[in-house]
Amino acid sequence: MDLYEKQYLYQRMVRAKLYIDSHYAEPIDLRLIADHACCSKFHFIRLFKAIYGKTPHHYLSSVRLNHARILLAEGHTVAEACEAVGFESSTSFANLFKRTVSETPTAFQRRMMTRKVAMLKQPLRFVPNCFVEQMGVKKRNFE
């Protein structure tokens, strides 16, 4: 395969990845993405996995989970996060979340909210003291 052919192939795979990155919340038909990438479904899956280390389906799940983590950390409920990122079943979302993150979505959300509150009230807990001094932060404001 010459360089231009390889570059063209990469551009098509990257376009497919970026499509997943921006449309993860919608029902995504991977066959359609393969068509857009001008590949057969099996060729598309093989190439995508060779480049990104995951099948398109697994990659889509990981993108959805990452966005769910962000939403949960912002304080959204588990049901809201599940729906917002495109999971159809809350049970499969919760199971996949626990397998990947090693804690339930509810436990993760609680931990993140506790951390967020602490970050606002006691930010000095999160910053090495040398930087606190270099930034000129007045510690008494947080004591």
Binding site: M119, L120, P123, F126, V127, M135, G136, V137, K138, N141
Partner: peptide, 28 residues
């Protein structure tokens, strides 16, 4: 990783590479 307002317009903002969550890069 951390986005903490430190008062008086100071913001402590750190990010991590996706597969290296233990390394905080401070955007100073």
């Amino acid at each position: 990783h951390t986005d903490a307002p430190m008062g008086e317009g100071v913001r402590w903002l750190t990010v991590t590479p996706p597969e290296q969550p233990e390394l905080e890069i401070t955007l100073y």
